[in-house]
Design a protein around this nucleic acid. Structure first.
Lengths: 158, 158
DNA sequence: TGCAATGCCGAAAATTATACGGCATATAGG
DNA sequence: CCTATATGCCGTATAATTTTCGGCATTGCA
């Protein structure tokens, strides 16, 4: 299905770093003609390797000064559906992961203030019937935060 | 500093969703001329509201089938520098957050297999002198994962 | 050997980005 | 009150880019 050659990988690498790189620049970088690169990129999208291009905004510039990870748990399996529906419609929730361990889900949440975080926990999370416990970790600073995915294996892994 | 009007917010919204939206489309959407939108977007970048545009790749298409969150802790404060330097150079680490609670850092890590996760913990994390404990949560599935930041306050928060 | 599929190429045409001068409105200082 | 300055918007001309097409070489396969 996947099976990307080195040119494909290079294109994915470049487009992850600079989503608006022109086809002529891409062509120069990989040593192919513009039309060949166009076709490659089109197929990468078609195959689902490239999912889209997104502008990256600064959270603080939008007033989103508070980042938190929220663990959530419940006992009744029927809660999952309602929870995911509610969470899916909530822009404050950037990520929702089903995780191993003592908790059901781990959420990545962005809000403006602790007051807004409180409102989120009260109105959104505990607004879903059946949710029993939560635990919130506040992010003091983010040393690294990227969406870049490596296209080559690291040195420490043969 | 920030102070975005409704047009700015709309532009940030649109560009987050579709980073390659043409200026003519943006102009149509916000009801301004192309040159006005060009200027607006340029200033949003200049002001640091828009940080860049990035292609989004499918982790599984790159063989990155395993997502994990890794908590890390140490006692000696001097460890932080070495840890962050090591982590910063590691593409497998997508995020590194300094968090409240019993752990020092929370990492978001993407690898191909459990075998590679083991190599990461052994060679990278424990390769940093002074690191004492880690705890790893495996992500079974991700119900939501987006980089989109809300540009308007939610209904549950006045 | 012949056939089909694939990837690549260059060029033409359509679309888009960029740069510029001009215009209207708002603001501050005299 | 009035002038000077700044800001935001506009349309247009030019440059650059995207998109599309037919053709060519290579590969795999019957």
């Amino acid at each position: 299905m996947a099976d990307l050659d080195s040119v494909d990988r290079q294109l994915v690498d470049l487009l992850q770093r600079q989503g608006q790189t022109s086809y002529s620049d891409l062509a120069k970088a990989v040593g192919l003609a513009v039309s060949s690169v166009t076709e490659r990129v089109r197929k990468l999208s078609e195959r689902g390797v490239l999912l889209g291009v997104h502008g990256q905004a600064a959270p603080e510039a939008l007033g989103l000064d508070l980042l938190a990870f929220v663990f959530v748990s419940w006992s009744d399996p029927a809660v999952a559906d309602a929870f995911l529906t509610r969470i899916g419609a909530e822009p404050a929730v950037q990520e929702a992961h089903h995780v191993t361990g003592q908790w059901n889900y781990l959420l990545k949440v962005r809000v403006t203030t602790t007051r807004m975080l409180e409102a989120f926990l009260t109105n959104v999370i505990k607004g879903v019937p059946g949710i029993e416990r939560t635990e919130t970790l506040i992010v003091l600073s983010s040393a690294k935060e990227t969406t870049y995915l490596p296209v080559v294996a690291p040195a420490w892994y043969g």
